[in-house]
Amino acid sequence: GAYRMKIYDRDELRGQMSELTDDCISVQDRFHLTEIHSLNVLEGSWILYEMPNYRGRQYLLRPGEYRRFLDWGAPNAKVGSLRRVMD
């Protein structure tokens, strides 16, 4: 299947937008971000990790809009890595 997600540095799907279609071992290295404040999962399911290298707390992201970090259940906006959930 296809995988696509848009990430934003501000809440409510605002601010600088970056797009992912594959795994990202370090959000900071690739996008120069340490925080993601909202996101829109367009295709596929993903796991968001608090730390790089797929470590730390993890949150399942199904397709849909997440307008603030509380929407995916996190206590803050800190994001380290993102990985696709393969079928």
Rank of each mutant, 00 (worst) to 15 (best):
G1C: 11
G1K: 13
G1P: 04
A2Y: 15
A2D: 14
A2F: 15
Y3P: 09
Y3N: 14
R4Q: 13
R4I: 12
R4Y: 14
M5K: 00
M5D: 02
M5Q: 00
K6D: 06
K6N: 08
K6Q: 09
K6A: 11
I7R: 02
I7A: 14
Y8D: 00
Y8M: 03
Y8A: 06
Y8S: 13
D9Q: 08
R10K: 15
R10Q: 10
R10V: 12
R10A: 08
R10T: 14
D11P: 13
D11C: 04
E12L: 08
L13T: 15
L13K: 15
R14N: 10
R14Q: 09
R14L: 09
R14S: 12
G15Y: 04
Q16Y: 07
Q16P: 09
Q16M: 09
M17T: 04
S18P: 14
S18H: 12
S18L: 08
S18G: 09
S18E: 08
S18V: 10
E19R: 06
E19P: 04
L20Y: 03
L20P: 03
L20F: 12
L20W: 14
T21H: 06
T21K: 04
D22V: 06
D22G: 07
D22F: 06
D22S: 08
D22T: 06
D23S: 12
D23M: 03
C24D: 08
I25N: 07
I25P: 14
I25K: 08
I25W: 12
S26K: 15
S26Q: 13
V27F: 12
V27A: 13
D29V: 11
D29E: 11
D29P: 10
D29W: 08
D29M: 10
D29S: 14
R30W: 04
R30A: 11
F31C: 12
F31R: 14
H32P: 12
H32M: 05
L33M: 12
L33V: 06
L33E: 10
L33G: 06
T34F: 07
T34L: 08
T34Q: 07
T34E: 11
E35S: 05
E35R: 08
E35Y: 07
E35I: 07
I36E: 00
I36S: 06
I36H: 04
H37Q: 06
H37D: 12
H37N: 11
H37Y: 09
H37W: 06
S38K: 02
S38A: 11
S38H: 13
L39K: 00
N40K: 13
N40S: 11
N40V: 11
V41G: 01
V41A: 07
V41K: 00
L42Y: 03
L42R: 12
L42D: 11
L42N: 07
E43C: 10
G44D: 01
G44H: 04
G44F: 01
S45R: 08
S45M: 10
S45D: 14
S45C: 06
W46I: 02
W46D: 01
I47P: 00
I47L: 07
I47Q: 04
I47N: 04
L48V: 09
L48P: 00
L48E: 02
L48A: 08
Y49M: 01
E50S: 09
E50T: 07
E50R: 02
E50P: 02
M51V: 02
M51Y: 10
M51H: 09
N53Y: 05
Y54P: 00
Y54H: 12
Y54G: 02
Y54C: 12
Y54I: 09
Y54K: 00
Y54A: 02
R55H: 11
R55C: 10
G56H: 01
G56W: 02
G56D: 04
G56T: 00
R57F: 04
R57H: 04
R57G: 05
Q58I: 02
Q58T: 07
Y59K: 08
Y59L: 07
Y59F: 14
Y59G: 02
Y59R: 07
L60K: 07
L61F: 02
L61A: 09
P63S: 08
P63A: 06
P63W: 02
P63G: 05
P63K: 09
G64F: 02
G64Y: 02
G64I: 02
G64D: 05
E65F: 06
Y66M: 07
R67K: 12
R68L: 11
R68W: 06
R68N: 03
F69L: 05
F69P: 11
L70Y: 04
D71C: 10
W72I: 01
W72Y: 15
W72A: 02
W72S: 01
G73H: 12
G73K: 08
A74Y: 01
A74G: 14
A74L: 09
A74I: 00
A74D: 01
A74V: 01
P75H: 13
N76G: 08
A77I: 05
A77Y: 06
A77N: 08
V79C: 09
G80D: 00
G80Q: 05
G80R: 05
G80F: 00
L82E: 03
L82F: 09
L82V: 08
L82M: 15
R83P: 03
R83K: 14
R84K: 12
R84I: 03
R84M: 12
R84D: 14
R84Y: 15
V85I: 06
V85Y: 12
V85G: 09
V85T: 10
M86T: 07
M86Q: 14
M86W: 13
M86L: 13
D87L: 03
D87G: 10
D87K: 15
